[in-house]
């Protein structure tokens, strides 16, 4: 008899554009963790951009179509039930498309017209379930399962878990959240905290865990982005953290780049490490730092990790 856990053991993997570029270490570590946990990631064939913010701001319906095509490929060409998107932007956009196709007839019509024009089956709401990498590990393995597989505990590492602003917002596109015990909270997300605690880390109380990282401002107003990141770094440090754990490539790159920029602009060096949660989990599972792409990060965490007996 198949269980809920089995459902998530083999999922369609939608890395999205960022994970092939600036977020490559997130891609690498997600795949490495999946392999170490015996989970099967099947990359969505010929996937396209989710529509990101650029397309969405020009025409939201085109964004809905682009995201729907990814889900259509997974459902109709790969016969998959679950699409896993580790990028917050992709995850958010696929969930938004799902919501729109369930609730907005105009979106249904536009997506149907464009799908026919592009020559593929139209995605219908409910054909797949879109999940984040956090849901994936939590639902396929669970905290207890993870604990049992830890080879090098993260004990002694204090972590500020940073979720960014798109993982839980807007609330209405995430109907599975805020459903009581066991579900994710949109105001105080905790899945990353739970997984890292299971791997031995000590989570700190971090008040800016869902605050804006300034990612969308980076090109138009990088000054504000740097100040926002500096503020996040200071708050994490003040919370007692050694590491900020991330689960979004935009947030991660922003934190790393503006950490350097803040030092140059304001002469303020906030000594805190920035690592993807998959990198931390991978090392807890006994993988080498290189295997989870720590060398691809902009900030240098190698010495810190060695001191902690990891990597």
């Amino acid at each position: 008899m198949s269980t809920t856990k089995d459902k998530y053991k083999k999922v369609a993997y939608y890395p999205g554009c960022a994970l092939e570029g600036s977020g490559h270490s997130y891609n690498r570590s997600t795949k490495a963790v999946g392999k170490a946990l015996g989970l099967d990631l099947v990359e969505v064939k010929n996937w396209n951009c989710c529509g990101a913010m650029e397309v969405k701001n020009i025409d939201p319906k085109i964004q809905t179509y682009l995201s729907s095509r990814v889900m259509s490929t997974a459902a109709n060409e790969m016969d998959m039930d679950v699409v896993m998107a580790p990028c917050n932007g992709c995850y958010h956009n696929l969930k938004k498309a799902e919501y729109d196709l369930k609730n907005d007839q105009d979106s249904v019509e536009v997506v149907d017209r464009l799908s026919k024009k592009a020559g593929h089956k139209t995605y219908e709401a409910g054909q797949v379930e879109t999940i984040h990498a956090l849901d994936w590990i939590r639902d396929a393995i669970g905290e207890e399962g993870l604990k049992a597989r830890v080879k090098k505990s993260l004990e002694g590492i204090k972590v500020a878990n940073y979720y960014g602003c798109m993982y839980t917002r807007p609330r209405h596109i995430f109907p599975e959240k805020d459903q009581g015990p066991g579900s994710e909270s949109t105001s105080k997300p905790h899945f990353m905290d739970d997984l890292l605690a299971a791997a031995g880390a000590e989570n700190v109380d971090f008040p800016l865990k869902t605050a804006c990282c300034g990612g969308a401002h980076t090109l138009s107003d990088s000054e504000t982005s740097t100040k926002l990141v500096l503020n996040i770094l200071r708050a994490a440090k003040m919370s007692g953290a050694d590491v900020i754990a991330t689960e979004c490539p935009t947030c991660h790159s922003g934190l790393e780049m503006h950490q350097i920029r803040a030092e140059e602009q304001y002469g303020e060096k906030v000594d805190i490490k920035i690592l993807y949660f998959t990198q931390l989990l991978g090392m807890a599972l006994g993988l080498k730092a290189r295997k989870v792409g720590v060398h691809e990060n902009i900030s240098d965490s190698i010495r810190f990790l060695k001191e902690k007996g990891l990597g």
Partner: peptide, 19 residues
């Protein structure tokens, strides 16, 4: 910490207004 959180709110909103 309250100062940092308030500063974040200021940066977020003033950033939006500026641009």
């Amino acid at each position: 910490m309250m100062g940092l959180v308030t500063n974040h709110l200021y940066l977020f909103i003033s950033g939006k207004l500026q641009v």
